[in-house]
């Protein structure tokens, strides 16, 4: 307290050692002082706020909300563009798939046709070979049957001769043929 060392009373509301008598707030002597400086400070605050601070903050807030709105609009536009691009991509994909399927089907048909021709050719060859083979087999079989008949005739003749009989060729042939069939 500045008045501590001071023994003279400088105010009706202070004792000789600078302590307060009563509430300093209610001391009438200081009230004009308080009001004067309050008004000065209030005026300064009001000037600063209304002339400088508030318009500036309002401008900044408006600018920010404008920027945000613009950015949101831009984002919306970009989103639409992205959706369009996606749709185009999907369409391209579907087209490509359809085309691929078509190509596959064509290739398959072509291959099938070629395969059919080759198969037919092969079948014909096989049939020809089979016919030839059958003919050869038939010849061989005939040959074999004839040989067996000859051998059987000869053997029969010899057997008959050995048993002391005589047989004419006609009888032997008929007997062998009957046996062979049986």
């Amino acid at each position: 307290m500045a008045t501590d060392t001071h023994e003279t009373v400088v105010s009706a509301c202070l004792d000789s050692h600078g302590g307060a008598i009563g509430m300093p707030q209610l001391c009438g002597e200081w009230i004009p002082h308080q009001i004067f400086w309050l008004l000065v400070a209030l005026a300064a605050t009001f000037f600063v706020m209304s002339r400088i601070a508030l318009p500036r903050i309002a401008a900044v807030l408006a600018e920010r909300s404008g920027t945000i709105t613009n950015d949101l609009a831009a984002a919306e536009e970009l989103k639409n563009k992205a959706a369009e691009a996606e749709a185009a991509y999907d369409k391209a994909l579907v087209d490509a798939r359809a085309q691929a399927q078509q190509i596959v089907a064509e290739a398959k048909a072509e291959i099938q046709a070629e395969l059919d021709v080759e198969l037919a050719k092969a079948d014909a060859q096989i049939a020809e070979k089979a016919a030839e083979s059958e003919k050869a087999i038939a010849e061989i079989r005939d040959g074999a049957v004839k040989s067996v008949t000859d051998v059987a005739k000869a053997t029969t003749k010899e057997l008959v001769a050995a048993m002391g009989g005589t047989a004419d060729a006609k009888t032997i042939t008929a007997a062998v043929t009957a046996r062979m069939k049986g």
Binding site: T3, V10, G18, A20, M23, P24, Q25, W30
Partner: peptide
């Protein structure tokens, strides 16, 4: 206890009385 002494206005320059303009 001098709980109210904190509310005493004191002159910044010198020890004089506190007038309305001080």
């Amino acid at each position: 206890f001098h709980p109210l002494d904190q509310f005493i206005p004191t002159s910044l320059f010198g020890d004089g009385a506190v007038h309305w303009y001080t």
